[in-house]
Design a protein around this nucleic acid. Structure first.
Length: 114
DNA sequence: CCATTGACTTAAG
DNA sequence: CCTTAAGCCAATG
């Protein structure tokens, strides 16, 4: 790996994965962290999402915690937009939680496999 | 430079 | 079902 690319990797990978999440599906911070070989770095995924506001085409609403709970909802503007976007894609949300989460869950470590 | 915080997760009591 | 604790690591004061 080139040294010039070394700096970025984690955050950039997070953005790439988020871009690959199919419409109507959702994944978790932990799943992304795990895919990036850092299963305990889910917080960094969240931090990357926090910075995603400055990035184009980052569907942060498709990333929730491992229970399908919309934990990052408060960071949207307005917060309700997160649930609205999910429902528009066909994902049912009840009480800030994704219904049938197990069905819409998209795990990069399985779907992208490699 | 040290302390605190956080869009998380797992384990333990 | 509840609270703590620990691990993770960039960002912020």
């Amino acid at each position: 790996m080139k040294l010039s690319e070394k700096n970025k990797d984690f955050f950039v990978n997070v953005y790439d994965v988020v871009r690959l999440i199919p419409k109507g599906r959702a994944t978790s911070y932990g799943a992304i962290a795990k895919y990036l070989s850092s299963p305990r770095s889910s917080r960094m995924v969240g931090w990357a999402m926090n910075a995603s506001h400055t990035m184009p085409d980052i569907a942060a609403h498709r990333v929730v915690n491992r229970n399908g709970l919309l934990t990052g909802k408060a960071h949207f503007n307005p917060p309700e937009i997160m649930q609205e976007r999910l429902e528009r894609e066909g994902i049912s949300v009840k009480d800030d939680q994704i219904v049938n989460f197990q069905e819409v869950f998209w795990d990069p470590s399985i779907e992208l496999k490699l």
